[in-house]
Design a protein around this nucleic acid. Structure first.
Length: 440
RNA sequence: GUGGGUGUAGCUCAGUGGUAGAGCGCCGGAUUGUGGAUCCGGAAGUCGCGGGUUCGAUCCCCGUCAUCCACCCCA
């Protein structure tokens, strides 16, 4: 009885073309981040459960994949480990654990899978890669500015031109909510509603706020602030009595002013309704939007209190996370991958005929490989037509024909499947004729 | 987690309460050293799974799983 061969819900197998696409994007992400001085980091898939609890809010906690205790304790149903839920909390743990070995300003990037027990949807999976960059140890707004620039560089290098880098500030939001006399316990609920303003409109948000238990007088004050297209100048006026919010506005103004000198400048836009779900953010928050995706391509922000939860002493930190899967979904739909990413691996197929010595073909293949060519050897004797067909179906552009005629004359016949042209060259010229670039 | 759509050949999808279909792809041949075009032929499906109604279910009903869309939330 065959067993179901599907991967577990929300998990995927990556076939060769999938892997090539993923590696293409990851290479660009890593390259750009390295140019900004970020260094690579990897952390374990599993974390102790107490490392992760209390960092993501109730909703996040519910989506965590927890691991049962093993051995005799398994039956108890207790969990002591969990699959990592993001790359930020493990980073905070690493900083607390290895503080003495890390530089004063620790800048790291990390591309690894994370797991969430969410319901799968387009661009949403239960196992997915995040590409994080974070800078630890500075409160300067240059950090936010450079992170936005790095992310913009990545997206531009991938071919995106129509993204928006939304920018907001946690303390501006809490300032608005507090001045509207919304109790702190309802801030989260209120933010979720406000976040939908561009989607469901003022009436929708009004209904949503009411449904979430916000007093109507408070709701009206909030709507008054957000409804009329709040810019930073107006925010200053409206929140003149809330010093903390004014400081937040000042930070946003700094980031925007500084970003004019970076690639992020044209893409950055203050969005007062941007909220973001993770509970650890304390300062500026960012998110990338593209028109064809309802969700975001990535997001980030400042979290000056998170490392302190491990260390007992606060260390400022700020980071950004790109969602690899979301980027891949959009790039695939828009056909943004260059041709070399789509093509098969081998540049040349070496033929093999019935009754011919395989050693000759092996020798030719290894000779070509020594010249840097990617060479696939047809593994069993077959009709030439079959071998051509195979090469064509694999996307291999050239076939090196080595049969009895060629061996007798000491030559090689080369067929270019893209043009149909066929040439005969001496064995010594074969590598160059097949496109090898001599490195010596 | 809530609501709705879909599940039939490798892929895209038709179809009917009475023995299962097309296009594309695949395989073979025309062409035993020449792919892509054309022609001829061929293989292939417990109609997602389990139960129920029925003389009989791929079709109707219930459940379940998968998948997609919207909501929720998010990368």
């Amino acid at each position: 009885m065959p067993v179901n061969s599907r991967p577990a819900r929300g998990m995927r197998d990556f076939l060769p073309e999938d892997v090539r696409r993923r590696e293409y994007v990851i290479a660009i992400v890593s390259d750009v981040y390295q140019r900004y001085g970020f260094e690579p980091l990897e952390t374990p898939a599993l974390e102790n459960i107490e490392t992760l609890t209390g960092k993501y809010g109730d909703e996040g906690h519910a989506l965590m994949f927890k691991v049962l205790r093993r051995g005799e304790h398994e039956a108890s149903g207790e969990t002591d480990l969990a699959l990592r839920y993001d790359l930020t909390v493990p980073l905070a743990r690493v900083v607390a654990e290895h503080r003495g070995k890390l530089p004063k300003f620790f800048k790291r990037y990390q591309v690894q899978p994370v797991w969430r027990a969410d319901r799968p949807a387009r661009g949403r999976f239960r196992e997915f890669y995040q590409c994080d960059v974070d800078a630890i140890g500075s409160r300067s707004m240059l950090i936010e500015t450079e992170l936005c620039a790095a992310v913009s560089d990545v997206l531009m290098a991938l071919g995106f031109r129509d993204f928006v880098l939304k920018l907001n500030h946690r303390r501006l939001l809490t300032g608005v909510l507090s001045s509207a006399e919304i109790p702190e316990t309802l801030h989260g609920a209120a933010l979720v509603a406000i976040d939908k303003l561009d989607k469901i409109g003022i009436e929708g948000v009004r209904a949503e706020l009411a449904a979430r238990g916000i007093a109507s007088t408070s709701a009206e004050r909030v709507l008054e602030v957000f409804a009329g297209g709040l810019d930073l100048q107006r925010a200053r006026d409206v929140l003149a009595a809330v010093p903390d919010a004014l400081a937040a506005i000042g930070e946003l103004e700094d980031i925007i002013a500084l970003s004019a000198a970076t690639s992020a400048g044209p893409y950055l836009r203050f969005d007062p309704t941007l909220a973001r779900g993770l509970s650890y953010y304390t300062g500026a928050i960012m998110e990338i939007a593209v028109p064809d995706l309802p969700g975001s391509l990535g997001g980030g922000g400042r979290y000056d209190g998170l490392i302190g939860m491990f260390l007992g002493e606060d260390i400022p930190a700020c980071g950004f996370s790109l969602g690899l899967e979301r980027i891949l979904v959009v790039m695939a739909e828009r056909g943004m991958f260059p041709a070399h990413v789509q093509r098969g691996v081998a540049a040349v197929l070496v033929t093999l005929f019935e009754g011919e010595p395989a050693e000759e073909a092996l020798r030719l293949a290894s000779e070509l490989r020594a010249h840097g060519l990617r060479v696939e050897l047809y593994p069993e004797p077959d009709k030439l037509g079959k071998q051509f067909k195979y090469a064509a179906s694999r996307g291999i552009p050239r076939v090196a024909i080595l049969g009895s005629d060629e061996r007798a004359r000491g030559v090689l016949t080369i067929k270019d499947l893209t043009t149909g042209a066929q040439t005969t060259v001496g064995r010594a010229e074969a590598p160059a004729a097949l496109g090898a670039v001599d490195e010596t």
